[in-house]
Design a binder for these strands. Structure first.
Length: 946
RNA sequence: GCCGCUGUGGUGGAACUGGUAGACACGCACGACUCAAAAUCGUGUGCCGCAAGGCAUGUCGGUUCGAUUCCGACCAGCGGUACCA
């Protein structure tokens, strides 16, 4: 054995041996474990130190699992179609296939230097025709089932990248690659009906066996954006046309005071003849069209719109005629592109109504149920009462008037009597209760509030509901009132103290909303002023009102179908032939793959057509159905297509009969552990789940969720906190780190830096720590006794077993940083011992081996083993060896640590308490105090309460 | 705005089901070795204080004998999403 640890010599040696001897192809074992990385997109820049973090983690797990007796599948491949590769090729004037080849070679060399267990016999490359043959095959299956279809809807078009994009490819309305703001461009495109799987994609997330972080699940749920609601028809007055609106709140239908159509809504064109101000409407629509999504949102949600003069919609609930507007706050692509506006209960409608001076009618009130003794009593008559409350302030708003009665403090409101309206009742109540007569009635506040409870003065249940108004006192003119009789007290309270002073909860709420300014009440509650539905809860009313107006209960999604064609060269050709007679005809399976033709120029055409369209000898081909003249589809698939199913191909990469053989598929699926960046939450992971569920439906796979456990890796940023990028000149190359510190120190450091899922800044200085640790682990080898009967000190043995437990658990839980720290503690302890037993050191080497495989293999062999350490067996944990005879206990006074005491493991509680009290450090604290209680937590703490 | 996550020494971070806050590591200081330096080894290192002791886990409250951990309100940062009816 070398006396000095030299990673440069041992690392390439063992890497070669592991490959040559196929150490990591123990596939025949009875238990399987499929561990997968999100395969890289090989860019021209090569790897930086941030990239391998996830790969190192899966490698640690793969090695540990093999030691624990599993047959482990741990493959690697390349995702290489798509714009980045094509743009790199254009810039460097090489063919994309050449560029990809070179980039892969660089990546592979860099990865191999880190020492991974990949089975390169299973390497796949999405741009290889033998691979994309099956990507095309899956597309054809979708086409057969009607899940792939052509559409002419406007799509997101990036004028700089010259291609259409899916919704998922946008970043704040801009192309996520180049930052150019996208346009809406109508063009023919292929679309995958992902919405058909929306519910199943949601459902799958709720499965118990799916071990995914809440974060990613929440992101996917949000992206799918399922909402249930009603489609309700509003007839157009004097016409047979209807406006169909979508609403999640049919319970607010009686509060609708107008309708809004999205500018894109085709119904507007149909109404052209009856719109009096057509030119105004038309110019508004033009204006909206010219503004991008970004501009629309940048305006701070300021509402704009135009009324369709002389058009009215009829509210099917009460036959009221409502004005109709066109406004861009209603989106054309969601729901039905039309809404009923209920300003009292929707923020956007509220803002629009205020701006355009439209009526606001509240039909939902918040319920307050009085507490305890004031709860409604069964079997009593229930009174329904309309009330109104004044919020009375002086001119300056310095103080507010509140009434104190019996044991409550509240606003001085009261009931509305027969024949009175709100304003009359309000005026009367103010004068009666406060005596003030010179006041102005201000804003009516939202919402009305219902207060339900038992009134013992009447021995009845009472449900009162009503609005509040702001009242401004103009002068001190007063007359005789209840206050003067001494029955009540009138309090003058400063604004900031009002909330504290009021005792009725519903009046507190009222005042809070008053302070918050006028806004819509968007929560659910109980219906008011809603005809026969008055008094129902929102929940009850939703379906009843929908039925009443013959509406349909429907489900809508935010998720859209996946725009699947790109007008670029470097992608999988879509295997379709267009024929004048037969339409879109699938390429027969026997003719797959449709190979991407070799071309001189693959730059985008600038016409919105794929460069493939310029190659007549490729495009022109007979129709497979009728034999007539046909033309190949010239659009290609998006970058994400190949990654939708690659994990299946790893299982059976050479199969020429099917994408994956059934037996092998059933043997290895699902993927037990999948590790990759969180940035793929709504694209790759959603797309792949969609394809997988489809493959499950056509019985190509046996599971309907592909990835059992998903862990997302935290990013490594540059030391300046920014992303590592050529642009900032802050990129650190793993080659340099491996040259200076060795691959093992590099692997350890990547995982030791911090919690695995957390983002963190790179710091090369930290590497000396993990390197020193390896040096120490190496030097301890010279303490190892060659004699058989040497036993370790008791504390070392206990520590060893603690470490076995800790490392085993931590690897499972992805707590690599603390696993490594516990290995450091063990190494430090061994280095202090003059003699360490061989078995102790061997166990240490085994525990270290997943993290630092090269040094572990080298040390293992010097201990006299002829076979690889990775064919050995993971050490077993013995709990009985962890317990020591004596234990250190904390003595604290009132929870504060004061002293430590070493006692035997089996000491009785009485002895413990007694001994604690007479400790030298403790006694001074007890002087002149009484000991109230002594709390003992065995093995941990004695707490003296004084 | 909404959803999710995170706030602990000079730095990265640790703390199991509420029980010694700061493990492990970096850095720094001092010492040993050396002609010297690097490397290595040893000792120390939350803050204030000579000390006894006090103060400390984003802020303010609460529960508890005892809170980084549980509860409530707030503040800050990161990520996702945003006029989705």
């Amino acid at each position: 054995m070398e006396s000095r640890y030299s990673p440069k010599t041992i690392e390439p040696y063992w890497q070669k041996l592991w490959q040559d001897k196929a150490i990591f192809k123990q596939y025949a074992r009875p238990k399987k474990f499929y561990v997968l990385d999100m395969f890289p997109y090989p860019s021209g820049l090569g790897l930086h130190v941030g990239h391998p973090k996830g790969y190192i983690a899966t490698d640690v797990v793969a090695r540990a699992k093999q030691l624990q007796g599993f047959g482990v599948l741990h493959p690697m491949g390349w995702d290489a179609f798509g714009l980045p590769a094509e743009q790199f090729a254009l810039k460097h004037k090489v063919h994309p296939s050449r560029a990809v080849e070179n980039n892969i070679a660089t990546y592979k060399r860099q990865l191999d230097a880190i020492g991974f267990t990949y089975d390169w016999d299973r390497e796949i490359n999405t741009t290889d025709p033998r691979y994309y043959r099956w990507t095309q095959w899956i597309f054809l299956q979708m086409f057969e089932k009607g899940l792939a279809y052509e559409s002419d809807e406007p799509i997101n078009w990036c004028p700089s990248c010259q291609t259409g994009l899916a919704n998922e490819d946008l970043d704040d309305g801009a192309c996520e690659r180049c930052g150019t703001i996208v346009e809406q461009k109508p063009m023919r495109q292929w679309v995958l009906r992902m919405t058909a799987y929306a519910d199943r994609l949601l459902e799958g997330l709720d499965r118990k066996e799916l071990e995914w972080s809440e974060e990613i699940k929440a992101q996917q749920r949000h992206w799918i954006g399922r909402s249930e609601g009603a489609e309700i028809d509003f007839k157009i007055d004097g016409s047979d046309k209807v406006i169909t609106v979508f609403t999640t709140r049919p319970d607010t239908l009686f509060g609708a005071t107008y309708c809004v159509l999205a500018p894109e809504n085709k119904l507007i064109d149909e109404l052209k003849g009856s719109v009096a101000n057509w030119s105004e409407v038309e110019s508004y629509r033009e204006e909206v069209k010219s503004r991008t999504e970004i501009e629309r949102t940048a305006e701070g949600h300021e509402k704009t719109g135009v009324r369709l003069e002389e058009v009215s919609a009829i509210n099917p609930a009460n036959d009221e005629k409502l004005p109709v507007f066109v406004a861009d706050y209603v989106l054309g692509h969601y729901g039905t592109g039309a809404v009923m506006a209920v300003p009292a209960h929707d923020e956007r409608d509220f803002a629009f109504a205020r701006k355009f001076n439209l009526p606001i009618r509240d039909v939902i009130s918040r319920i307050y149920i009085l507490k305890d003794e004031n709860k409604e009593k069964d079997g009593l008559e229930t009174l329904h009462r309309r009330v109104v409350d004044p919020i009375i302030r002086d001119k300056e708003g310095n103080f507010y008037l509140i009434k104190e009665s019996e044991d409550h403090v509240h606003f001085a409101g009261g009931g509305i009597d027969e024949g009175e309206n709100e304003i009359q009742a309000l005026s009367r109540e103010i004068i009666e209760e406060t005596g003030f007569t010179d006041f102005t009635i201000g804003d009516r506040l939202y919402p009305q509030i219902s207060c339900w409870g038992y009134r013992h003065t009447k021995n009845k249940n009472q449900r009162s509901v009503g609005p509040a108004y702001e009242i401004i006192l103009n002068s001190n003119t007063r007359i005789h009132s209840e206050v003067e009789d001494g029955r009540h007290e009138l309090l003058k309270i400063k604004k900031e103290d009002v909330l504290k002073t009021i005792t009725w909860e519903h009046h507190q709420y009222l005042f809070e909303r008053y302070l918050g300014g006028q806004n819509a009440y968007i929560e659910e509650g109980v219906l008011i002023d809603s005809g026969e539905f008055t008094g129902l809860s929102s929940e009850e009313a939703k379906k009843k009102i929908t039925d009443f107006v013959k509406g349909r209960w429907v489900t809508k999604y935010r998720l859209k179908d996946w725009v699947f064609s790109r007008q670029r060269y470097w992608g999988e050709p879509i295997p379709i032939i267009h024929c004048e007679h037969c339409g879109a005809v699938p390429v027969p399976e026997k003719d797959l793959p449709v190979k991407l033709p070799e071309v001189e120029s693959y730059a985008p055409t600038g016409t919105g057509e794929s460069p493939l369209a310029d190659i007549p000898e490729w495009v022109n081909t007979p129709c497979p159905k009728c034999g007539g003249a046909g033309k190949r589809e010239t659009n290609t698939m998006p970058q994400w297509a190949g990654s939708c199913w690659y994990y299946l191909r790893f299982i059976d990469p050479m199969n020429e009969k099917s994408l994956v053989g059934g037996g092998a598929e059933a043997e290895w699926m699902p993927v037990d552990l999948y590790v990759g960046g969180a940035e793929h939450a709504t694209r790759h992971l959603l797309y792949a789940r969609f394809w997988h569920k489809f493959l499950f439906d056509i019985k190509a796979v046996s599971t309907d969720e592909p990835f059992k456990r998903l862990v997302h890796v935290g990013l490594i940023n540059a030391s300046d906190g920014r992303k590592m990028s050529k642009r900032w000149g802050n990129v650190v190359n793993p080659d340099d780190i491996i040259r200076d510190f060795g691959a093992d120190a590099f692997r350890l450091y990547e995982l030791f830096m911090g919690p695995f899922t957390q983002n963190i800044a790179w710091n090369t200085e930290g590497l000396v720590g993990t390197r020193r640790f390896l040096d120490k682990a190496w030097s301890v080898r010279s303490h190892v006794s060659e004699e058989k009967d040497v036993t370790d000190a008791a504390h070392l043995e206990a520590l060893l077993h603690k470490t076995i437990g800790k490392v085993t658990e931590d690897i499972d839980a992805f707590r690599f940083n603390t696993a490594i720290s516990s290995l450091m503690i063990l190494a430090n302890a061994m280095s202090k011992e003059p003699r360490v037993s061989k078995s102790c050191y061997e166990t240490f080497v085994l525990l270290l081996s997943p993290f630092a495989p090269h040094i572990a293999e080298e040390l293992w062999r010097t201990l006299g083993h002829g076979e690889s350490v990775f064919l050995a067996v993971w050490p077993a944990y013995d709990n009985s060896k962890v317990l020591e005879e004596s234990v250190v206990m904390t003595i604290s006074i009132n929870g504060k640590m004061r002293d430590l005491m070493t006692v035997p493991q089996d000491i009785s509680e009485e002895d413990l308490g007694a001994q604690a009290l007479i400790r030298e450090k403790i006694r001074p604290f007890l002087e002149g105090k009484t000991v109230k209680k002594i709390i003992i937590v065995p093995g941990r703490i004695v707490n003296i309460v004084i």
